[in-house]
Structures are given as C-alpha cells and as structure tokens.
Design a protein around this nucleic acid. Structure first.
Length: 183
DNA sequence: TAGGCCATCTGGTCCT
DNA sequence: AGGACCAGATGGCCTA
C-alpha cells in the first residue's frame, strides 16, 4: 500500500492569493487587465484549450469580457478550484469503488488508475465470455457473432431487471457466480 | 536520481 | 451566466 502524504498538496493554492496581493486593486487600466496573473500566463504560454481551439490567443487581441474586479475573479477562481477538487474526489471515489469491484491478486498493492481500468475491462470481457458460454443453451448463438449474442444477453439482463427487479437480478448474479465457481 | 503516479491549479470549451 | 468537463502544467511523494 502506498501511503502518500497527499495532504501537502495545497502548495499551489497560495499562488492565487499572491496574485491577489499582486493586483494593484481597482486601478485596472482598460486593456491591461488581460495581464491577469501575468506570471501565470507567461508560464502557461504554450497551453492549448481543448481541441486546440486556441481561441483568443492566436486570433489577435481579442479581449475577454471584464465584468468583474480582480477580487471577484479571484473569488470565482477559488470557488472553481474547490468544485474541481470535489469533482476529482468523486472521480477518485468511483475509481476506488471500481477497484473493490474487480478481483485482483496483489491485494496489498493499490491498483493505479490505469491498472484499474485495464483490469476492469479484462474482467468484463471474461465475465462476458463466461456468461455467453453459460447461456449458449438459452440464447441463440451463431458462430462468430459474439457481439450479437452479447447484445441479446444484455437484452435478457435488462428484461430480468424489468420483470423481476432486484430478485431477478440477484438470481441472475447467483447463476453467474455459481457458474464461474464451477468452471 | 529517474520515472511513475498523483493532486491541484488553471483556462478553454461545452452544456444547461 | 455559471457550472461541468477537459487537458496541460507543475510539483510532491514514492520506488527501483
């Protein structure tokens, strides 16, 4: 288990506050406000937006709406940072749930995100294979048509959900479990 | 020490 | 308009 001292990670947050101190408060010369966080924008000179749109940068002095003071922007940025942090925490919780859902050998070592995704994918694939084998009796399975069978299987599964709700699902899972134990 | 993994910040874009 | 999503940048921690 990797116990990384991630709590220290706030180091970059003060940069915003620094920025705030840095700003000469209201006297923003019209136009000069685009220099916001001058140090930052210099450092990020090579950055690209999603899809390489590069919006305002390459297309000349297109100026962003300045509807707020530096202080307001700071507040919004901090709020935005907090939301992003929460979002990433949710994402990490989902990763953790996924880790716990997939069996793996080295239980003492925490799976990395990429490992988790890869294992999950393989796990799903192998389960699908098992289920397809198991259900070949009740599902028409033409050779070389795994996708079609998988689709039918999914329909079957969804129908179980509709018809019998949780009980049906439980039974379905039990079947899968006992089958995989037996094989 | 290098490389992998990660958390966080940041600004652009998309969506509601 | 504002929040969600995304990807690049940065720096810290850990292991080989």
């Amino acid at each position: 288990m990797k116990s990384k001292g991630k709590a220290v990670k706030r180091s970059r947050q003060p940069s915003v506050e620094t920025d705030q101190e840095f700003q000469p408060e209201p006297e923003l010369e019209p136009g000069s406000s685009e220099q916001e966080g001058s140090e930052v924008s210099l450092r990020l000179g090579s950055r690209r937006g999603r899809g390489g749109a590069d919006a305002g940068v390459a297309s000349g002095p297109k100026r962003r709406r300045q509807h707020s003071s530096a202080k307001e922007r700071n507040v919004r940025r901090l709020e935005s940072n907090e939301r992003e942090r929460q979002r990433m925490h949710k994402l990490n919780n989902a990763f953790q749930a996924l880790r716990e859902a997939i069996p793996h050998v080295k239980t003492e070592k925490k799976l990395s995100k990429i490992e988790t995704l890869t294992l999950a994918k393989n796990y799903i694939k192998s389960l699908t294979t098992i289920i397809l084998g198991m259900s070949s009796g009740c599902l028409p399975h033409a050779e070389g048509q795994e996708h079609a069978s998988a689709a039918k299987l999914l329909q079957c599964y969804q129908k179980q959900l509709e018809d019998e709700s949780e009980a049906g699902l439980a039974q379905f899972l039990t079947q899968i479990h006992s089958f995989s134990q037996g094989s």
